[in-house]
Design a protein around this nucleic acid. Structure first.
Length: 424
RNA sequence: GUGAGCGUGGCCAAGUCGGUUAAGGCGCCAGGUUGUGGCCCUGGAGAUCGAGGGUUCGAAUCCCUUCGCUCACCCCA
C-alpha cells in the first residue's frame, strides 16, 4: 500500500461514526443547557496569535505547531488549541459590547506535531467552552460543572476532579520565587529535567513524575498559601460554589498547566487510571489573556476536552450507545426492465426523505444477502412477474415475512412508516 | 528528539534453531435453493511474507540498512 493516513491521524470509519455523533450531540446539548452558544473558528490563524497567547517558550509553540507560509507570504499556523481563536473572535466581533458574560462552546479539530501514543494524536478533536466578562467565581464553578455534566451525561462517571489556584500576576511571582528558593536546596538530588525546569519553568517542577523528585514535591511550598487576598477570596468561594453543585473535588497543589496564560483557577478531570495521558479535560481561568492579545481587559475562563479520549473511555466502560433503527429499503431486481423500475421507485422514495437504494446487479440470492448486510429494513423484489401484474413483493427483513404491494402502495408504506420505527 | 516491542491476503493470525505448491479463522465472491437474506454445507478469488541489499545450492525464517506501526519518556486533550 503506497498511501496511508499521515502519522498521528486516523480515519473514522462508518461503524465508529455513532460514537462521534453521540459525543458531539451530547456536548452541544449539555453546553446549550447552560446557555452556551456554538462558535466555529478557522482551522488556521495568524501564527502570532498563538505565540502571543500560548506563550513562545511553551512546548506547543516551540516544537509542536504546524506552521507554514501561504502563497502570499503570511505565516499561518494550524490551530493547536481552541482558546486563542475564540478570544480573537470575541475581540474581532466586538462581543465585549454584548451582555456579559458571553458564553461560547466549540467542537473542532486541533493539530500538534507530537509523537503519537495512546490517547494522543497529531490531529485530534476538542470540545471546549469559554466564558468571557465574568470574574466572579460562580462562573469558574459553572465551567467545571459543564465539563463534569457532559462526562457523566455521556456515561463516564468514574471520574475525578482536581483543582488548584496558581494566583494572578500580583501574587504568583512571589510564589515562584519561594518555590525556586526552596528547590535550590535540593538541586543536587533532582532529576536532570527538574534541574532544567528550575530555570525555565519552575511551576512544572511540581508535576515531575520521577520517583526521586517526589519527596521534594511533597514538602514544597503550596501556591494556595501565597495567594493575595483577592485571589484567596476567589479560591475559597470557588470551593463553596463547587460544593453547592454537589461535584466532588480534590485540591491538588501540584496541579499546574502547560499554557502560560492561566491565572487563579486551574483544573483537570481524569478517569481512574494513573496515566497522565488519560487527562480527559483540563482548563482554567485566563484573566490577562485578552488584554495580552490587544483587547480590552476582560476576564475569561474555559476548558478543553479531548474527544478521542472521551470516546476511548466510552469504549473502556462499554457504554451502550442507542441508535434508532430506521426505515431503509433495498430494491432487488431481476431483469433490465425491473432494474429501471427499481431505479425509478427508489428515487421517488428518496424524494420523500427516506433511505432507499438499488440492489447490486447480481443474482437475487446475492442481492438479498447484500440487503441483510446493509441492515436494510425492507426489500422490494421486482421481476418479470411483478412488472406484468404491477404487484411487487415487499419483504420485511426483520420479521421474515412478505406481502404483495403496488407501486402506489410502496410510496404510501414509506410515508406512513417513519424513521425511528423499530425494525429489529 | 530518546528508548523498547512489532510488521505474513481487506482483518485476526500459524509458521521464524533456513529445505518441495506459505496453515487456519473472519470477511468477500459463487454454488447448494433455474426468483428470496441472517444459520449450515461446498467451492473460488485474494500474499512479490513492510521495503532494499547481503549470506546460502536454497531465506517469511540468518545478517545489515531503511520505512512504517505501537507503547513509553518529554509535553499535552
Amino acid at each position: 500500500m503506497e498511501f496511508q493516513a499521515p502519522r498521528g491521524t486516523t480515519d473514522v470509519l462508518p461503524n465508529d461514526q455513532r460514537y462521534w455523533r453521540y459525543v458531539e450531540n451530547t456536548a452541544s446539548q449539555v453546553a446549550e443547557s447552560f446557555g452556551y452558544r456554538r462558535i466555529d473558528t478557522p482551522v488556521f490563524e495568524d501564527t502570532n496569535l498563538y505565540i502571543r497567547s500560548i506563550g513562545d517558550s511553551t512546548d506547543i509553540v516551540e516544537k509542536e505547531t504546524y506552521t507554514f507560509s501561504d502563497r502570499g507570504g503570511d505565516s499561518l499556523t494550524l490551530r493547536p488549541e481552541g482558546t486563542a481563536s475564540v478570544c480573537r473572535a470575541y475581540m474581532q466581533h466586538g462581543m465585549h459590547n454584548m451582555p456579559q458574560p458571553v458564553r461560547l462552546f466549540y467542537l473542532c479539530p486541533n493539530f500538534r506535531y507530537e509523537r503519537p501514543q495512546a490517547g494522543r494524536f497529531r490531529a485530534f478533536h476538542q470540545f471546549g467552552i469559554e466564558a468571557f466578562g465574568e470574574s466572579d467565581p460562580y462562573i469558574d464553578a459553572e465551567v467545571i460543572e459543564v465539563s463534569w455534566r457532559f462526562l457523566t451525561s455521556v456515561g463516564i462517571d468514574d471520574i475525578s476532579l482536581r483543582i488548584n489556584s496558581i494566583g494572578d500576576s500580583n501574587c504568583r511571582p512571589k510564589y515562584v520565587d519561594a518555590l525556586q528558593t526552596y528547590y535550590q536546596n535540593y538541586s543536587q538530588s533532582l532529576c536532570p529535567d527538574c534541574v532544567r525546569r528550575l530555570e525555565t519553568n519552575p511551576l512544572r517542577l511540581l508535576d515531575c513524575k520521577m520517583e526521586s523528585c517526589q519527596p521534594v514535591i511533597q514538602s514544597a511550598p503550596k501556591s494556595t498559601e501565597y495567594l493575595c487576598p483577592p485571589c484567596n477570596a476567589h479560591w475559597v468561594q470557588l470551593q463553596e460554589y463547587l460544593e453547592t453543585t454537589g461535584i466532588g473535588y480534590e485540591i491538588d497543589n501540584t496541579l499546574v498547566r502547560g499554557l502560560d496564560y492561566y491565572s487563579r483557577t486551574v483544573y483537570e478531570i481524569t478517569p481512574p487510571t494513573e496515566r497522565r495521558t488519560n487527562v480527559i479535560a483540563g482548563g482554567g481561568r485566563y484573566d490577562g489573556l485578552l488584554e495580552q492579545l490587544g483587547g480590552p481587559t476582560t476576564p475569561g475562563i474555559g476548558f478543553g476536552m479531548g474527544i478521542e479520549r472521551v470516546i476511548e473511555n466510552i469504549r473502556r466502560l462499554e457504554i451502550n450507545i442507542a441508535s434508532n433503527p430506521k426505515l431503509s429499503i433495498m430494491f432487488a431486481h431481476i431483469g433490465e426492465g425491473a432494474k429501471k423500475e427499481a431505479i425509478s421507485l427508489s428515487s421517488q422514495i428518496r424524494r420523500l426523505g427516506k433511505e432507499a437504494f438499488v440492489g447490486p446487479s447480481r443474482g437475487l440470492r446475492s442481492q438479498m444477502r447484500y440487503a441483510s448486510h446493509m441492515n436494510s429494513s425492507h426489500v422490494i423484489i421486482i421481476g418479470d412477474d411483478e412488472l406484468s401484474t404491477g404487484l411487487y413483493t415487499l419483504r420485511d427483513l426483520s420479521k421474515g415475512d412478505q406481502t404483495e404491494i403496488t407501486a402506489d402502495g410502496i410510496l404510501n408504506f414509506v410515508k406512513t412508516h417513519d424513521i425511528g420505527q423499530k425494525v429489529d
